[in-house]
């Protein structure tokens, strides 16, 4: 059977949600699958709504945008409020509970990760929260191998921050292991 997963990673500009989506898509292709990543962000450098969408499939991908997602990752309250309606009934919600206060009552599976808090404590900057969430996400969708993820991270972040990003990703993996 064809495997296909549609993911939306959402938050605010500056949190690295677009980068997280790019890394996931790249790793999916390195794992031999088809992937498309699209994004939406505001004109402002920081603070406006941002989202990144990734479709991973074994077959050709036509329409590149995500309409209903299998996994919704949110790093801000406004993002959760805005995108929750697009999560499929049997989907998975992945929430950074350091930046999101209220999660709607739901029957979908919810994973709560204190990503921004952990990032600040362990890596000295909240900016690594995206990699922690990406680690948890990689474990949930299980279509992309960890080696490919690490390769994609190494290729996509500034040289000085590679180790911290990879470690943050591994921290995220461990949250759900």
């Amino acid at each position: 059977m064809t495997q296909r997963v549609e993911v939306r990673i959402s938050g605010l500009g500056g949190q690295g949600v677009v980068l997280a989506g790019q890394i996931l898509g790249k790793a999916a292709v390195y794992s031999g699958r088809n992937a498309v990543q699209t994004q939406s962000y505001g004109s402002e450098a920081r603070g406006s709504a941002a989202k990144s969408e990734v479709i991973i499939s074994d077959s050709k991908i036509g329409f590149p945008a995500v309409r209903k997602c299998d996994v919704l990752v949110t790093l801000s309250q406004t993002a959760l409020d805005k995108h929750f309606k697009d999560l499929k009934k049997g989907g998975v919600l992945l929430v950074d509970v350091s930046t999101v206060e209220s999660i709607p009552e739901t029957k979908v599976k919810v994973f709560k990760i204190p990503a921004t808090e952990t990032a600040k404590k362990t890596f000295g900057a909240g900016i690594y929260a995206n990699m922690i969430m990406l680690g948890a996400l990689a474990r949930i969708i299980n279509l992309v191998n960890d080696k490919a993820m690490e390769k994609a991270i190494r290729e996509s972040v500034p040289e000085k921050t590679v180790e911290a990003n990879v470690n943050a990703f591994n921290t995220g993996l461990e949250f759900l292991t």
Binding site: Q22, N34, A35, I61
Partner: peptide, 9 residues
């Protein structure tokens, strides 16, 4: 914008 910014293999 879609095709310019999109990433795929």
């Amino acid at each position: 914008e879609t095709i310019a910014h999109m990433r795929e293999q």
